[in-house]
Amino acid sequence: MSTLYERLGGEAAVNAAVDVFYRHVLSDDRINYWFEDVDMERQAAKQKAFMTMAFGGPHNYTGDDMRNGHKHLVEKGLNDSHFDAVAENLAKALAELNVPQAEIDEVLALVGTTRNDVLGR
């Protein structure tokens, strides 16, 4: 039985998905203002790391990283609605890339496990 990461297509799939996903995020007025001041080059690396994790691939993220990385945003009001919007854009991107619904659900379940850390709860 291959892993989710392998079934999705590994690093090449991550690279394809990052572009589509992040383009949706930057075009979504519910959340794009959170990304206004980010450095795009650093963001590219971060998005890739995030997507790799979401795909169940090799990553070094810990719950504390998620917590610390979003702490300053939580202080400014980052909440469930923003988390949901990001997840929605992710699902939309994967559907566009013809990822089967069963795998999309697995990805969303994985991302969901980070919710409390991201939102500092």
Binding site: Y22, S27, M40
Partner: peptide
């Protein structure tokens, strides 16, 4: 340029 289609990489 990213929004217009250039890949991040």
């Amino acid at each position: 340029v990213f929004l217009a289609g250039v890949s991040l990489q």
